[in-house]
Simulated assay, not measured.
Amino acid sequence: MPVAVKICGLSTPESLNAAIDHGAAYVGFVFYPPSPRNISPEKAGELTAMVPATAKKVGVFVNPDDSLLEEVLSAASLDILQLHGSESPDRVREIREKFDRPVMKAIAVAGAEDIRAAKTYETSADMLLFDAKAPKNLENALPGGNGLAFDWQLIRDSQWSVPWMLSGGLDADNISEAIATSAAEIVDVSSGVEVRPGEKDVHKIKAFIEATKSKDKTHG
């Protein structure tokens, strides 16, 4: 079976339709003002209304307070809440219970210690997402979407009790290697299908998803 794909940071009907038409299993919408991919709850409401049942709608938040989550969920239909900040396991559990939605916790990875630390979230999150940790000297670094990759071998031999996604620096050119190295069954891309930060390219979306379809979950 092909690897499942999440196209994140969508903000236009054209890019959303490209993701859905080519078989994305997850579509992501960012609610974080510093990000060039940030959209309003109202815009998200318009876009999520276009998503068929074949794709899960994911809202990406960074250390959100309850009022932001309430505002977004009152305007947009989301299936999964992705937490991409420094949320603790207790906060992840609290959001999951209060808003009655599955929660995906993003883990910033630079080394093996970050993989080990992710284990603390297995009992509070429904899914995990492994992304590259931005170096401290990276100017205007975001919690995700920086186009950086980590050593995919770090994740390969880890066993998890919840589903997980591979993210960080992925594009159509390296996705086959990334899947083969990490043994990922779900992958997430944002900057790798853009012409510039925040502007998705429908041709790159198609190429990325098609590149993943050539890989089998047995990874060779």
Rank of each mutant, 00 (worst) to 15 (best):
M1H: 11
M1T: 12
V3H: 09
I7G: 10
C8R: 07
S11W: 01
E14Y: 03
A18R: 08
I20T: 09
V27A: 08
F29Q: 07
P33W: 00
N38D: 13
I39F: 00
P41C: 02
E42S: 07
E46L: 06
E46K: 08
L47T: 15
L47N: 10
K56E: 15
K56F: 06
G59N: 09
G59D: 05
V60F: 04
F61Q: 03
N63G: 03
P64E: 01
L68Y: 05
L69F: 02
L83Y: 01
E94I: 05
E94C: 06
I95F: 01
K98A: 14
P102Y: 09
A110K: 14
G111V: 02
E113G: 00
A117V: 08
K119T: 12
S124H: 07
S124M: 07
S124R: 05
D126P: 12
D126A: 12
L138V: 11
E139W: 04
A141T: 02
L142A: 01
D151S: 06
W152R: 05
W160N: 01
S167Y: 04
G168L: 08
G168V: 14
D171L: 09
A178F: 10
A178L: 09
A184G: 15
S190M: 03
S191W: 09
E194H: 04
V195P: 06
K200Q: 08
K206E: 13
K206T: 15
A207T: 13
I209N: 03
E210H: 13
T212D: 05
K213H: 14
D216M: 14
G220L: 11
